[in-house]
Design a binder for these strands. Structure first.
Lengths: 281, 281
DNA sequence: GGGAATATGAAATAATAATTCCAATCCATA
DNA sequence: TATGGATTGGAATTATTATTTCATATTCCC
């Protein structure tokens, strides 16, 4: 007999979605509005919400009653609860992690610190990355005969992952490693029909800078990932990305750089497939 | 003349903190309550808030007026705005990113996909990582004379970063690379006084597994980072971590593995410093 | 197509909540 | 310790808001 009144937002959402088909027109209208604008329901008055949704206040109340609430007010509680529980906003959670990392003892604190640094970096790059630069870089790299990947020291792991991914995508590439000490020769093979992905952060590895200079003088276009407009890499680059990685315990995160690197790599893969398809057509 | 009315929560907060000293007792009381329980201010009624804070409703209104608002209602707006603007919860943001990545076209979508995958992975590992395992692994590695780092293919970037970080921390380590084809010999040098960090995910690189088996038969303890308890690495390992990395476009994130790797590395560095200190004392 | 059941709109009403006002109290200063 | 000004408590008042009611419209089924 007693129909279950949804006590939390998710249940409520599910209930609404479930009954969607069987609801009268106006009730359905307010139901859709509620799911689309939950914040409005949480804060608005019955009248204001009704007006925004294009129905009468009484409809709003009927909607609430149909869900088993005894009125709009108790329905609204659920929407308000949602905002309260959402309490641990991303930033607050991060702050907590960071606090634990700084104050806390033990190795868990170190781990939390790296998680926080990585999250912060991802967050930052997600906000700041310029779509146009991304498109430009991908176009440039997609046209290259061979993609050279240039990075040392701290950035080297990123370079090796790029090389791995490019290989899996069957895109010709050359990782410029120092093992054999033949970098200068390797670099010498690059032509303007190729392209370079160069990665370096302060303190810039001198070898990376020197090789980037040399290769840009040969007219090979460079896509750079670096950390500021003052970076020596930026001046050699056709396109460059500024990536600010957060650090912890003296080690910077690589997560943002990795994500960007992957986007470039897979982006090039997709672009080539598209171009290939067009050529055939 | 017209005193600036705080329009956003941060300004309001600053204003309150600024005037704190000069506020009358009851007003100060409600001010403190407001900063401590902003959600209550956002949702409560003047009467309920006043009761919780132990003052009269009229005091609440005087408080609002002193800040330049024309009443409680407009003060409350600021607290409500805060909840609205507070970036949608982490999960919702992620969902949005993922939706964009899946639905959206263009290369930005790819980028968003990788960001979402990385965030998810970080989130997961932060929840699931076992502190005891972490302590155990760090103890084990801290005692090692040489730390061998073993990983191929997709996991190799992590290994190279570990090697870089260990080097910077002046911890003796050996990256087992395949370049010279001398892995078997390299592995042969390891003794039970050393230790190994091995990283491999499905599909497990046969070389990694084979080398891990060989080295464990020599009695060298292994710390493994892998993706499930069925992993062949897990059976050779003294301590192992299960890391579930989210993937996008066929490429798994490395962010969680990286964070764990860094925590291990820096943890070992700290542990050695501590032990060194104790020995001296 | 007719009629009952259901849904909707609009305004009246009831409830609730914000604000104001005034008397009482507190506090600093002479 | 008296006095003026500021502060506070509490009830009265006003405003706002939710809810109910009822007339009208729509839909669905026979």
């Amino acid at each position: 007999m007693d129909e279950q009144v949804p006590r939390d937002f998710e249940t409520l959402r599910a209930t609404i979605l479930d009954r969607r088909e069987s609801l009268p027109k106006r009730i359905a209208q307010i139901a859709a509005y509620a799911l689309d604008n939950p914040d409005d329901i949480a804060f608005g008055t019955a009248a204001s919400i009704a007006a925004s949704a294009g129905v009468q206040p009484s409809t709003l109340i009927r909607f609430a009653q149909q869900l088993g609430f005894d009125g709009f007010t108790s329905l609204q509680q659920v929407f308000r609860e949602r905002l309260r529980e959402r309490n641990s906003s991303y930033d607050e959670r991060l702050q907590a992690l960071r606090a634990k990392a700084e104050g806390g003892a033990g190795h868990r604190a170190i781990f939390d610190g790296f998680i926080a640094a990585a999250s912060t970096s991802l967050n930052d790059i997600s906000r700041t990355l310029d779509d146009a630069h991304l498109e430009e870089a991908i176009s440039l790299l997609a046209k290259a005969q061979t993609i050279y990947v240039l990075a040392k020291r701290r950035s080297y792991p990123v370079a090796s992952y790029i090389a791995y991914a490019l290989g899996k995508l069957k895109i010709r590439n050359q990782l410029i490693e120092s093992a054999a000490g033949l970098n200068a020769e390797m670099v010498g093979f690059a032509t303007p029909a190729d392209a370079v992905i160069a990665i370096s952060f302060s303190p810039y590895a001198p070898a990376t800078i020197e090789e980037a200079r040399a290769i840009s003088e040969q007219g090979v276009p460079i896509v750079a990932i670096t950390d500021s407009s003052f970076s020596p890499l930026a001046q050699f680059a056709r396109v460059w990305f500024e990536v600010a990685e957060a650090d912890f315990a003296g080690f910077r995160s690589l997560s943002a750089t990795m994500a960007l690197a992957m986007a470039l790599t897979v982006g090039v893969g997709e672009k080539r497939r598209d171009v290939g398809r067009k050529r055939k057509a």
